Simulated assay, not measured.
Amino acid sequence: MILLKLFITFFKIGMFSFGGGYAMLPLIQLQVVEINNWLSKKEFIDIVAVSQVTPGPIAINSATYIGYKIGGVIGAVISTIGVCLPSVIIMFILLKFVIRFKNNNFIEDIFKFLRPTVLGLILAAAMIIFQESVLGFKEFLIFLFVFVLSLKYKLDPILLTLLSGILGYLIFT
């Protein structure tokens, strides 16, 4: 029964989320932390952090990890399929319409309307992560240092991630 619940939960998340993984985070948190109580807020923040630095889309990484935690390997597979399947179905359905109406102004207006919605969802995810994380002075200094390096020198994100990890290791061990 838990496997069916995992599938339905992540299918709903995949079906009603627009804009990719970061836009999905508020919905994932609502379903996983608040409604189903599968994870604590701290565990959710940890999953988001790990999902950001591992290869692949954040929503899929999160779904896979949560599914594994709740239902083992089969739970991971079912959660991953659940979050991906709506996009696949929608793309097959929309493909016919996009080809047919690709130069239609109404369709272009719909996508213009969705852009700010997606931005709002991404900002909501950022606010949730910021509010729930325990950010001490040392963590803030690492963040500030890496943020300044990013803006001033346009360094590669992978290098900045590695630098953050090294600084965190040196400061906290």
Rank of each mutant, 00 (worst) to 15 (best):
L30Q: 15
S164E: 12
V32C: 11
I129P: 04
G56R: 07
I74T: 14
I13T: 04
N104Q: 02
Q31I: 01
A63L: 03
I74D: 00
F130Y: 13
I107Q: 02
V73Y: 13
T54N: 09
G21Y: 02
S87N: 04
T64Y: 09
K5L: 10
G72N: 06
S150T: 08
P86S: 03
V73I: 15
V98S: 08
A76F: 01
G136A: 03
L85K: 05
K102M: 09
L170T: 07
I128P: 08
I70Q: 07
V50T: 13
V98D: 01
G19W: 01
P116H: 06
F97Q: 13
P26V: 03
V53Y: 14
N37S: 14
S79C: 05
T173D: 09
Q31T: 00
A63M: 06
F10V: 06
I122N: 04
F18R: 04
G56C: 10
V33Q: 11
G72Q: 05
E139H: 14
V32D: 04
N104R: 01
F130I: 10
S62W: 01
K102G: 10
G120I: 00
I99D: 08
D46N: 13
Q31Y: 09
G165K: 07
L167Y: 11
M15A: 15
P157L: 01
G14N: 02
G19M: 02
M24D: 02
I110K: 05
I89R: 07
I66W: 06
L119V: 14
C84E: 00
I129H: 06
G67P: 02
V88L: 14
T9V: 01
V118M: 12
K152Q: 10
Y169G: 11
I142K: 08
G19A: 04
F113T: 09
K102P: 00
S133K: 14
L162H: 03
Q131I: 00
A125V: 12
L155E: 02
M1I: 07
V98I: 15
I89V: 15
V83E: 01
M91R: 05
G72K: 10
E43P: 03
L155S: 05
L85V: 03
M24P: 00
L119Q: 12
P57H: 03
K154H: 15
G82I: 03
P86V: 02
T117M: 15
Q52Y: 09
L151G: 12
F137M: 10
F97L: 14
K102T: 00
V146I: 15
V98P: 00
T64L: 12
L144N: 00
M15W: 08
